[in-house]
Design a protein around this nucleic acid. Structure first.
Lengths: 354, 354
DNA sequence: TTGTAAGCGTTATCAT
DNA sequence: ATGATAACGCTTACAA
């Protein structure tokens, strides 16, 4: 019926090839030296017996495992699944495999997963850290000699390479474009939750990508003459209902808000749906720009203007950095900023300035 | 600077707690028995030393690894990334982790990945097999005692549980609905490639989900009185260009095709975009139904009618079956069929029948 | 209850 | 070039 539990070992192959375990191990492991005759005998024996090496045992011996741990906020989100694909493709080329985990953007789960992955003795970690203010688990990983690369987020206090978008600049690009089109009242909507629904101190925002964008938004908005820029930031768009309420507040605001920035593609699609459900026409009745060039942004009419975050590249670069570290690169950790160009499509209208 | 390579072992903890290695191992591993005093001493020592168990070594000893291998066609595709999330959530609850791999729907890569995962001694495998006609690698896994569950696809010759949608029935539901609305000439568009662009023998289709749907389509279409049903199946929609050509052929057909079925959400979105680009109005000028309830299908106007494939559930169920097998369930392999309901939205128009 | 010692399947050292 | 043999860190008889 079902096969046996135990598989063949080098010892079995050695016996069949009439050489010592050491010799068999050398040719099978591809290290050391062996005579041509021995090599042939071993390879042939392995072939006919159907020997499959045990990487667990190999990792035990060598101390290094060909596994890289990846922790993302939500693998279901195209933002991350594309990044994971980039990571996966790059790691594969270096003969590494990937253990994947979801943090659900919760610190407790992230901590748990780091622990699990460390126990598995992963060679390295690629993490989108949930909270830049709680780093003990990541520092522990580094202390244990496991290199860490952060994805989409930068944590200066961590001795780790970081791959992120040019978040602050991207906001500037979008706002300048909107300003030129006459927009003065612009809202920024994010899924980030705040205790009282109001924006608190910037330092309390644990995700750098979120913080940078909001910081940039506040600066530019203030420069544009808006008195209370922080009131233009709407937090807590964590679901369709919450987003609907936010859209209501935006539509009811005075002076009238004429453009909305969506911090990610989930929020963006919710806002879009909410606006269409209310019969509003884009871009006449409202302008909209979303982060991330998601599929859905290319099938609406008009198509959505987006800040394109090439997360596949984020992933690639992250994997590349990790591989470099695994190969011994011990230059100081660097922050790699990837351009996130603004793709203008059809959702920016012009406003007649008074 | 960087931390030490070597971490603490049970021996270190044992020494600190002044007990034997065995005792320390027992309390740390949570097996066997130990006195309350010993337990406390060990736990405290482990705590202060910062001991982290080595799961690699544990797996070596016990023979079982807490890792499950998952091989999907494309993690970037929401169809699979949702399934992976379902798998991940379910495995986590059983203290299992997941190694993920992309086959890119290529048999050679799938074979390679199975081999890699087997070498890692994964406890089990969840695979969306690329080709039902090449099963040696999966049979080898089973022979080695590694349970396999197939995802989205069924392979009768394989002694493995299978989780799939009710593909054949779903086609029937859609076609009946379209027929009722007066449609007689209906096209089915799939990404599957065929050598000569023509549909060959059904048995040559290596993916059951694809085969079943096409089989169902042919049967129903013939019953509906279409003479050459196979000419209504358009294969090779593997990119925007190819899809554009197919759409051209469909629009130029005579008698006129009035409805299009898209085999997956990628193809669906390409067709939708192609149709809108040509200025066609849905559903007046063309009806459209896509498989998979992707994000993009809910932001178009009108929204796209879809066959909803709850792939998160596919993944959940797959993981559940695998866990059951790991726990020793050795009942004959089963095929679990998950309902894929037809969600009618706005893209089915009615045709005046002559 | 606790300890001793023998594995698990590799790699790696050191003679030969 | 090859072969004993000792690790690697854990589990697990078997003894005490």
């Amino acid at each position: 019926m079902s096969g046996k539990k135990s598989s063949l070992t080098v010892a079995d192959v050695a016996r069949a090839a009439k050489v010592s375990k050491a010799t068999a191990a050398r040719v099978l492991g591809g290290y050391g030296i062996a005579s041509e005759t021995a090599r042939k005998a071993v390879l042939e024996a392995a072939e006919t017996l159907g020997y499959q090496p045990n990487d667990l045992a190999r990792s035990m011996s060598t101390g290094r495992s060909g596994l890289v741990g990846v922790i993302v906020g939500d693998i279901e989100n195209a933002f991350f699944s594309q990044a994971v694909r980039g990571i996966s493709d790059t790691l594969r080329a270096a003969d590494l495999n990937l253990i994947i985990s979801n943090s659900s953007e919760r610190l407790s789960e992230e901590i748990e997963m780091v622990s699990v992955l460390l126990r598995q003795r992963v060679a390295g970690l690629i993490v989108a850290p949930t909270d830049a203010r709680h780093l003990d688990h990541l520092k522990a990983a580094l202390a244990a000699g496991t290199p860490v690369v952060t994805l989409d987020r930068h944590v200066p206090e961590l001795e780790a390479d970081a791959i992120c978008g040019d978040d602050r600049e991207s906001v500037g690009r979008v706002l300048r474009r909107l300003h030129k089109a006459g927009h003065r009242q612009i809202a920024y909507v994010t899924a980030m939750e705040t205790t009282d629904g109001k924006l608190g101190k910037l330092e309390d925002i644990g995700i750098s990508a979120v913080r940078e964008r909001i910081a940039g938004f506040l600066t530019h908005t203030r420069e544009a003459g808006v008195e209370k820029p922080s009131e233009m930031v709407f937090t807590g768009a964590i679901g369709a209902d919450e987003t609907a309420k936010i859209v209501s507040r935006i539509l009811g605001s005075s002076p009238a808000i004429t453009a909305i920035l969506a911090s990610d593609s989930i929020v963006g699609s919710q806002i879009f749906r909410e606006l269409s459900d209310r019969g509003l026409k884009l871009p006449q009745d409202m302008s909209l720009v979303s982060w991330f060039d998601a599929d859905w942004t290319r099938v609406t009419s008009p198509r959505i203007s987006v800040v394109h975050q090439p997360t596949y590249q984020f992933g690639q670069k992250a994997a590349e950095r990790l591989i470099a570290r695994l190969k011994g690169d011990d230059t100081p950790p660097e922050r790699f900023v990837i351009k996130t160009p603004f793709l203008e499509r059809g959702t920016i209208g012009s406003v007649r300035t008074k």
